[in-house]
Simulated scan of single mutants.
Amino acid sequence: MLAAYDRQMRRNLDADGPDGPGVLIERAGGVVRRMGAAHDWNCVLWSELDESTADEAIAAQVRHFTALGVEFEWKAYSHDLPADLPARLLAAGFTPEPAETLMVAAVAELPLDTAPPEGVRLLPVTDADGVRLMVDVHEQAFGTDGTALGRQILDQLTTAPETLDAVVAMAGDVPISSARLEFRPGTDFAGLWGGGTVAEWRGRGVYRSLIAYRARIAEARGVPYLQVDASDQSRPILRRLGFAELGTTTPYIYRPPLSPGV
């Protein structure tokens, strides 16, 4: 399963795949990188390196993205080589964010009938108004600015709607949770992303209902597996639902230095 995930979702991406306007997938110097606008997710998705090539490949990506003036993420997995890749990224000036657990489940084995708690309805997100509700939830649930995320989601809904299903849980007129399901056509995996619930609604089954909602969509689309990068908070819930752990993934962020006078 891990080999299939690496092959389909990291290594063999289509260079002109439907990832949004202006997004490019490039292979250069032993890595596969995703590049978009400054507000987009710019990252190294895959690397095939060893002790003799890693440092130069890291330096090359730093030079490349710094020349573009954008920060980027090196998405490192626990099984990536060389084994000391994390230490090399740290030495090159990257900052690690909390590690997450790569988890996968067969859609056919998941509970699909979990309903939201009483008084909560699930609202599909299809336009800018829905995206604003998602951003509101994101900022409350995670305590971070959701402006760039909102632009990414709206770009994707506008240019490649077949690759994204987004949903907001509403308690009356108040958004309390949101999540999205991302598809990559031609693969066996759909990704669960952004699941977050405001503090006062946690522990009531809203998150589980959003898992079931998205699993039903994946089933209808004929996608056999769901994948998620799980936080420490969501991992126990996903494990109880039947997700298996395949390893860990850590985002290493590189922020180019500001130009003089900026």
Rank of each mutant, 00 (worst) to 15 (best):
A128S: 14
P260N: 04
F94N: 03
D232Y: 05
A212V: 05
Y5H: 03
A37H: 12
D188A: 06
Y5S: 03
I58K: 08
F243C: 02
R239S: 04
D145W: 09
W193M: 11
V262I: 10
P111Q: 09
L192M: 04
I217P: 06
F183C: 10
A38L: 02
A76M: 07
A148N: 12
M170V: 08
E139F: 08
L122K: 12
I237T: 05
V31A: 00
W41S: 13
F183G: 10
A59D: 10
L123F: 10
V206G: 01
R10G: 07
A115D: 05
R63P: 04
V32S: 00
L49C: 13
T158R: 13
P111I: 15
A218T: 07
M1R: 06
A67V: 05
L133A: 14
D50L: 03
G194C: 02
T144N: 13
G196F: 00
S52H: 15
T147N: 07
W74S: 08
S178A: 13
W74R: 09
G29R: 05
R204W: 00
E200I: 08
S209W: 07
M1P: 06
P18V: 11
L210P: 13
F183D: 08
L238V: 03
A105S: 08
Q233Y: 11
V107K: 07
G130P: 01
